[in-house]
């Protein structure tokens, strides 16, 4: 070949490499996470107890599945406002379905397995509704999932009459059993979280997710079935939200219509993704970032209660945290453009 076009950039120097590490969102988050743990422990050394780490892991597990759901959706260029209310409606419906089994003294493992499948199914229906509105009716994801959010939150109240559904103390005892600081419930959630990370970053499915969010037109032109992929992503997010509903059922021994709704779990999950370094315009996001973002949010909100900070301040601190993460990201983007 006689012609040659050079696409090489400048040399990657040691100095630049160091700067890359220091401005790397995951690295910064990791440092922040360690600093937070040390800070709370310095205020109350009981923070280092196995029991407290068990609490942290449990609360992390209640957030991480919907945060990863949100990661998939946001990386694909969308947003899902429905995850909180999907957890609520799945929890109350499944709680109602499995209560007869509880009353008849059926083995708890069977009860919880049936409940889990039921929650996944209801979550898939909710995700399917969002997907239908987006792909068939061309609604923007924000509006489509707002519809699903409203429908889910409303149905959860209608079905539960506003009262807790089901009464299953056995589930609570099971939720607390495990080895050391890791309960079985947490272990299952963490395994699922790792699988989601592997799929996102190492498989063709994950690659398509990034490609669609980065440039939907290019993805379509490259022969990727964009519509089918987007449907699957919203259904996946719904299933993960449903499983989160089951998680809270197991933890509390009952389903509540307010679960994930009154605390705006959808926004907390989105915050975890944004803190993790994802871009709301799509195409950018890391599993490790979301995991660390969710961990930081969990440690902050639990730690502030732990050191007895008035509840009114906790939201303010979380807000400040999101602002810092966003600023860091914009700084990083600017510095990359300069180099």
């Amino acid at each position: 070949m006689s012609t040659s076009v050079d696409v090489s950039g400048s040399e990657v120097t040691t100095d630049r490499r160091l700067r890359r590490v220091v401005t790397n969102q995951q690295f910064v988050l990791f440092v922040v996470l360690i600093a937070l743990i040390l800070f709370f422990a310095s205020r109350n050394s009981l923070f280092f107890r196995v029991g407290e780490f068990s609490n942290l892991f449990t609360d992390f597990s209640g957030l991480v599945l919907i945060a990863l759901a949100e990661t998939y959706v946001i990386v694909a260029g969308g947003i899902d406002l429905a995850v909180g209310s999907t957890a609520a409606v799945s929890g109350v419906v499944a709680a109602g379905w499995i209560q007869p089994l509880v009353n008849h003294g059926v083995n708890q493992a069977v009860v919880l397995l049936v409940g889990t499948l039921a929650c996944a199914f209801i979550g898939a229906l909710a995700g399917g509704l969002s997907a239908l509105l987006i792909t068939a009716f061309d609604l923007v994801p924000f509006v489509a999932t707002l519809v699903t959010y409203s429908v889910g939150a409303g149905l959860a109240l209608v079905i539960s009459h506003g009262a807790p559904v089901g009464y299953n103390p056995g589930a609570i005892y099971w939720s607390a059993s495990g080895i050391g600081m890791i309960t079985w419930l947490v272990a299952i959630v963490l395994v699922l979280a790792v699988v989601l990370g592997v799929v996102l970053h190492l498989t063709v499915y994950g690659r398509y997710n990034f490609a669609i969010g980065s440039n939907e037109f290019a993805a379509r032109a490259a022969g990727i079935a964009v519509r089918r992929h987007l449907i699957s992503v919203y259904v996946l997010a719904g299933v993960l939200a449903g499983l989160t509903g089951m998680f809270f059922y197991i933890r509390s021994g009952s389903g509540a219509a307010t679960t994930g709704v009154t605390n705006s779990a959808n926004l907390v999950a989105i915050a975890a993704v944004v803190i993790g370094g994802a871009s709301l315009t799509g195409g950018v996001g890391r599993w490790a970032g979301t995991m660390l973002g969710a961990a930081v949010l969990t440690v902050v909100s639990d730690g502030l209660i732990f050191i007895n900070v008035p509840p009114t301040w906790i939201q303010v601190v979380v807000g400040a945290l999101i602002a810092v993460a966003a600023l860091l990201q914009s700084f990083r983007r600017r510095s990359r453009r300069v180099t």
Partner: peptide
């Protein structure tokens, strides 16, 4: 201790009380 705010949500109350029990 400072108030725990559940936002009408059993699971939020549960998490916060777990912190109080631990601390």
């Amino acid at each position: 201790l400072n108030d725990v705010v559940s936002q009408s949500q059993p699971s939020v109350a549960q998490s916060a009380f777990a912190q109080d029990i631990s601390a």
